[in-house]
């Protein structure tokens, strides 16, 4: 039972991450893979505030989200003003570069990671509390993104993504929309990082490497890029799938790469045979109707 509850915590966290990543890549059309670094910034900010300042967990998690929100501008401001392809390249450099910094700073725990993050929920119901919190926050994030994208602001985002030139010709500021989308998505990733830090009480730079980017990308592509529920389905499916492999009793040295092989194979299969993912975006579904 404890195992299933821990899985629920992880599902909540990854639903936040995949939905916010979908906001950036699927709805905004911004080609970045640096989402895990904002997850890391949120986790490290929360962890450090909890260890050194002892502030209220809610404030620490919100601070994590705020740091990720503003840090995203360090990446988006220089790269977005040039062209979309540059964002992709800078995002890889930004992620690896910041992780390199974290690995060499003593106050972040260096390469060995940051431990001793205080436990904020005692007792046997600890995991249950975290599962409820992460799932509630995940639902809130999905609903906020849905609300954001179905209103007038959503139509503006769709117009910008579909034809940026025409959008700009109408006097709209595409750059501001992109910056805002990127910052909001990154802020949500920071909040997920805060919950992660409090739950696991230990974080290390290795947890936020490029492989994490691949996992999030898989969740979004398999679930359905640009659909509201796609990343949720993708996150749940791809967190449950490895559990089936775990019953094969393979050694850990084979298990981790095998999971990676399965993830990447799924992405390739979906890219060619079902590019719209398991849940097609609403617009495309509507187009198919006679």
């Amino acid at each position: 039972m404890e195992y299933l509850v821990s899985l629920a915590v992880l599902i909540g966290i990854y639903v936040i991450l995949s939905s916010s990543f979908n906001l950036i890549i699927g709805f905004g059309g911004l080609i970045s893979i640096a989402h895990p670094i904002f997850f890391a910034l949120g986790a490290y900010t929360t962890g450090l505030l909890a260890i050194h300042c002892g502030i209220h967990p809610l404030l620490a998690v919100l601070a994590g989200g705020t740091v990720a929100f503003f840090a995203s501008m360090m990446l988006s401001l220089p790269s977005l003003r040039i062209s979309g392809d540059y964002l992709l390249i800078t995002s890889i450099g930004f992620q690896l570069g910041l992780l390199e910094v974290i690995k060499h700073l003593s106050f972040t725990g260096g390469a060995s990671g940051l431990g001793n993050i205080p436990n904020v929920v005692d007792g046997s119901s600890r995991s249950t509390v975290f599962a409820v919190v992460s799932c509630v926050v995940a639902s809130a994030v999905v609903l906020i993104i849905r609300w954001l994208l179905t209103g007038p602001y959503g139509r503006v985002i769709s117009a910008m993504r579909d034809d940026e030139l025409a959008f700009s010709a109408l006097g709209r500021n595409a750059m501001m929309i992109k910056l805002a989308l990127f910052a909001i998505g990154s802020g949500f990733a920071g909040i997920a990082g805060g919950i992660y830090a409090y739950y696991y009480q230990y974080i290390s730079p290795d947890q936020f490497e490029i492989l994490q980017s691949a996992m999030l990308l898989t969740m979004v592509v398999v679930g359905g890029m640009g659909s509201h529920l796609g990343p949720v389905v993708g996150a749940v499916l791809l967190l449950l799938l490895p559990q089936a492999i775990s019953f094969m009793n393979l050694p850990p040295s084979v298990m981790a790469p095998l999971q990676g092989v399965i993830f990447t194979t799924l992405v390739i299969i979906f890219l060619f045979w079902r590019p719209q993912g398991l849940i097609a975006p609403a617009q495309r579904q509507a187009q198919r109707k006679p």
Binding site: T264, V267, I268
Partner: peptide, 12 residues
Amino acid sequence: IFTLVVSEFLAY
């Protein structure tokens, strides 16, 4: 996505 995923598939 395709080129990145091919790269990661081979690495895994």
